[in-house]
């Protein structure tokens, strides 16, 4: 693949964004987006055309070639990953992150990118587990026959210790197998044993429902 200067990469990325947004890409719009003069745009477009990354009839609409699309997508992905990292993990503000991601994206190797993506993914699933996201449900809200995975025990003191000792640990599968005729307590299956607990106790066990 041809080596491109950061500026040229920005042009490719910009063309892709405009194409997706408006369907057609004009020099004027591109100049506006990248905050450069129309004359500089023409200059750069000429270079990109030479590299066969874009097609352009004179003064007409700009089109990316397949090779151009590939590169543009790759850069945009790096941009998104970096921005996600800066904002969500480091807590950089949106505007600065946008600017920094713009500068950093051009120098990021594929290897680092992949590692960063993996890291962000694992962080994301971890975060879902700890935050009381929509995916987590109180055990007391599960209907008869529903299964889940224990994600968090919010109980304290005696109850917490008793639950942990009896095997209500993170990652353990749990199933509601009976509900008392009066609606409380409930009976669950965990670690191969049948355990009954009151609803106000089951409330303190957060599970991820599994089908």
């Amino acid at each position: 693949m041809a080596f491109l200067t950061p500026a040229l990469e920005d042009y490719l990325e910009g063309i892709l964004i405009l194409k997706e947004e408006k369907g057609i890409v004009r020099v004027k719009d591109l100049a506006h987006l990248l905050k450069v003069k129309a004359s500089s745009v023409t200059e750069s477009l000429k270079k990109l055309k030479e590299l066969e990354l874009i097609d352009q009839e004179k003064y007409g609409y700009i089109e990316l070639t397949q090779a151009g699309i590939n590169i543009a997508k790759e850069i945009r992905e790096k941009h998104a990953v970096l921005k996600n990292f800066l904002v969500n993990l480091l807590g950089v503000n949106e505007e600065t992150a946008e600017k920094d991601a713009c500068s950093m994206e051009h120098y990021l190797s594929d290897e680092t990118l992949n590692k960063l993506i993996n890291f962000l993914n694992s962080f994301a699933s971890e975060k879902e587990g700890t935050a009381l996201g929509e995916k987590l449900k109180k055990l007391s809200l599960l209907n008869l026959g529903m299964k889940g995975i224990v994600r968090k025990i919010t109980a304290v003191g005696v109850l917490k210790r008793r639950l942990l000792d009896m095997g209500f640990v993170r990652g353990e599968e749990i199933e509601v197998i009976n509900v008392a005729p009066l609606g409380d307590p409930i009976e669950v299956l965990i670690k191969g044993s049948q355990v009954s607990l009151r609803k106000d106790e089951a409330e303190k066990i957060l599970v991820e429902v599994i089908p």
Partner: peptide, 11 residues
């Protein structure tokens, strides 16, 4: 005193 109800139902 609080005592948990949590109790095993033996087979």
């Amino acid at each position: 005193e609080v005592t948990p109800f949590v109790m095993e139902l033996p087979p």
